[in-house]
């Protein structure tokens, strides 16, 4: 069960499932973190958090608290 925040920098992963709820889940779906979406891990911020991901062609930064809610493959 790989979570998005553990994915290696530079790797491309596929979204399996979201364990977020409520507004955050809505926001994640809206950004395109749907099942099967491919996400590239770009880089980590100055203290290792947040991390920038390329989601559906856009650069999105997520804190570890959020990216740990995304199960990937």
């Amino acid at each position: 069960m790989l979570k998005l925040h553990n994915a290696c920098i530079g790797s491309i992963v596929t979204v399996e499932d979201l364990s977020s709820t409520g507004l955050l889940r809505e926001r994640m779906l809206a950004l395109g973190l749907t099942k099967g979406a491919r996400v590239e891990v770009i880089r980590k911020g100055p203290s290792g958090d947040p991390t920038v991901f390329c989601i559906r062609g856009a650069m999105i930064a997520l804190r570890n608290e959020e990216s740990s809610l995304v199960t990937v493959q």
Binding site: S20, L23, L24, R27, M28, L31, P50, V52, A58, M59, I60, A61, L62, R63, E65, E66
Partner: peptide, 11 residues
């Protein structure tokens, strides 16, 4: 606790 947020880095 800090609430969740997503930040887009536009081109």
């Amino acid at each position: 606790l800090p609430s969740t947020f997503t930040l887009e880095l536009p081109p």
